[in-house]
Structure formats: C-alpha cells, structure tokens
Amino acid sequence: MSGRHLAKEQPDSFAFSKEGESQAKYWIAKYPDGKQRSAVIPLLWIAQKDNGGWLSEPAMRTVGDRLGMAHIRVLEVATFYTMFKLEPVGEHLIQVCGTTPCMLRGSGDIIKVCKNRIGEKNTISADGKFTWEEVECLGACVNAPMVQISNTSGDHYYEDLDEAAMEKLLGDLAAGKAVKDGPQNGRKTSEPLGGALTLSDKSLYNGARAKPLKSIPNAPKLAKKAAPKKGTKK
C-alpha cells in the first residue's frame, strides 16, 4: 500500500451544492458553539459527493474555513480515512470486498472482471465510467462475493456475484440501464437460493398455534384494584 496523496491537478474552486449546503447546516447545528469542527467528517463526505466522488484541495479548504479549522487539520482527517478519495474517480466507484468470506466465494473472479473491463485499481476506465478498488469487509458476508457501487444515486450493494453477473452489471451501468441492487442471482435478501427452507409452516404465523398465557414472567403483579378515580390527587 502506498501513501495517499492529493491529486496533481486540482480545480480552482469548490462550492457546496444547494442540497449539500442544507445538509452541511444540519450537521454543523448538531454541535455546541465552539465545537463545530466535530462536523468535519460529515462535511467532507458531503463535499466529496458534491465534487463528483472525490475531495479536491479547494473542497478541503472550503470545509476548513466553514468550520473554523486549520487546513492542515482537515487534511489530516481526509488522508486518514480511506473513504475519502483524494483523486478523481469514474462515474461509478466500485468497491470490491476482498476479505476472507468473499475471497473464498470468488471475489478474485470479480477483481479479474474489474481488471479486464476497467484496468488497474484506482484508475479511471477509458470511458470515464468506472474506478475500482479492493476494500476490507463490507458486512455482507452472507451474500458473498459482493461489491459496493457509489454514484450520484447513492451507495448500493450488489451481492451474490459471479463473473457473468459482474460483467452484466458493468455493462448495464455503462449503458445507463437501470440495475437492481441486492443479490444478483435471484436470492431474496439472505434466504437460500430458491426460497426459505425452514420456518415455512403457515401456522407459525397465522395464530393457529396460539395459546393463552397464564402469566408473563417477570411482569409486575397486576393491581387488583381498579384504576384511581379521576380527579383525585395524592
């Protein structure tokens, strides 16, 4: 892993979008006076979204000035967290999970597809559509292997991939077609392929097996007396 650096070519300026501006205000208002710098991570994140998926140097300065922080302090945060991209990315940023469960389930094939279609990691594809990188666990091991794709419509998980599904996904995204997020092999969330195999008995859910309770464990004893009369005060 090599150190992360600011991009060589930087835009001249940065300004929050209208929506970004209102989000920034929302986050800054969360902290008491004098502690506005606590909002640096949310603001950098908003700035990254407003800047086409990466943080430019003017964007960091804008965030620092907004929060009354020294620019070096903003740079420290932005370079510490890998979720902040310091160099331009393609329209879709693909984060391939390469941690053990995904690796065992074939994330190597996904990476191979990325390499063929896009090129080396952290580079922008020739058509400007994609950038990919390998990341650590994204918490969807049950649907391994998976990728997260970030673009203007948000951050989406695409799960249960294989080479063909990944090829198709990239093709559809490049063509601007709508893609469905979640499992790509027909699974419903994390159910087994082809539907649930257990707890399928309808009577579990329709109340047919319900029995009246004698008592509820640990519940306070029900007062035998009726509720206090209205209007009386202690």
Binding site: M1, S2, G3, R4, A70, I72, E76, F80
Partner: peptide, 11 residues
C-alpha cells in the same frame, strides 16, 4: 496550526 500528521499507519 500549520503542522500535521497526514495519512496513517506506515504511511
């Protein structure tokens, strides 16, 4: 506030 520690770990 002019000096800072950027990047992380071995970088």
């Amino acid at each position: 506030e002019e000096l800072g520690l950027v990047n992380r770990g071995e970088n």
